[in-house]
Design a protein around this nucleic acid. Structure first.
Lengths: 165, 165
DNA sequence: GGGATCTTACTCGGATAGAGCGTGTCCGAGTGCTGAGGG
DNA sequence: CCCTCAGCACTCGGACACGCTCTATCCGAGTAAGATCCC
């Protein structure tokens, strides 16, 4: 029950890219520098987001990343699944059927009750994340943190963002 | 985002022990054999459950494990935390504060919005598991699977359970 | 024959190797800018 | 002075080692039953 550090990096990266004008891109190097993380490692996850259709990448000089759709259409679940994969955390191995004294499989009509309960809880988790967009998070964050933080990110974007030719 | 296989083993083990009379114990060897799992590996998790106060262990010959409290007082969350640890899956590293252009920490009054949203979803997950007891799962499972499965476990318990002297 | 004691076998408990995956890094492919050279 | 072209620097993309956690295992400590010996 542990999420990789790449999840947080991906989410913050998308949050940063949200402040970018539509016809601009921000290179991964600038994102890594802004958050003080390893560039190579961040690229790994940005590429995953790009493959999932969340980000658009522009190669070459003056290239970079930008959002593929508005931030109010990007949910935390989208980012989580893109980085960590789509499989559920709990996977039923059907150990109830193993062992020496098996009975016929037809007796096990329904799925394992434990598995059902675990997956049901996990769906609640995913539903909650699916209802929260990056735009929601940013709106709440700015409200509670005040304007200084937002000003800092805007300044950084202005300094490192690049408009597409 | 992956749960260890020990979680499933622990939960099924507790489910099996639920069918045991109060003054009896079941050795780990019998549980491992029933589920076809490795004894040594199962012991690791049964010990974790014992340390968490969910199971009671009786050493020596005719020893074994039994529930420390009734199965309707044991929730899936208890088992999950005992096996996987109490820390949350998402851990905020505060990468928003790192990087070259830090501003004073006092500006970051509230916690990170992303962290808040992730932890909030995870609490929903935990709440759902905290509301589900092993007794609930067994009741539902017996209802959907029919009596043959329950009969098998009862027979196994009768053959391998040991009453305390 | 009864009781104490010693051996024994069985249990849990903690410490110890191996495998798989996440973490971190590196080098290569592609692209647009830039400068020089020629018309 | 303007156009063409080659070189180049910068970007993303995929392939490659390292470390840690999970998986699996082994050996040691403790205990109660059972056999044995003594009274």
């Amino acid at each position: 029950m542990k999420l990789g550090e790449g999840v947080e990096q991906a989410m913050h990266s998308v949050a940063l890219l949200s402040d970018l004008s539509e016809d601009s891109v921000l290179p991964a190097k600038a994102i890594a520098s802004f958050y003080g993380t390893s560039l190579s490692y961040l690229l790994k996850h940005l590429q995953a987001l790009s493959a999932a259709g969340i980000l658009t990448s522009v190669p070459g000089p003056r290239g970079g990343y930008k959002l593929a759709r508005p931030s109010n259409k990007i949910t935390l679940l989208d980012l989580l699944l893109a980085v960590e994969g789509h499989s559920y955390a709990f996977r039923c191995r059907e150990i109830r059927r193993r062992g020496p004294s098996q009975i016929d499989s037809s007796f096990y009509t329904a799925q394992c009750g434990i598995s059902a309960a675990m997956l049901s809880a996990e769906r609640l988790y995913r539903d909650a994340l699916a209802k929260t967009t990056i735009a929601d998070v940013l709106a709440q964050s700015e409200e509670s943190n005040g304007p200084a933080v937002a000003a800092r990110t805007c300044a950084y974007i202005a300094a490192h963002g690049r408009s597409l030719g």
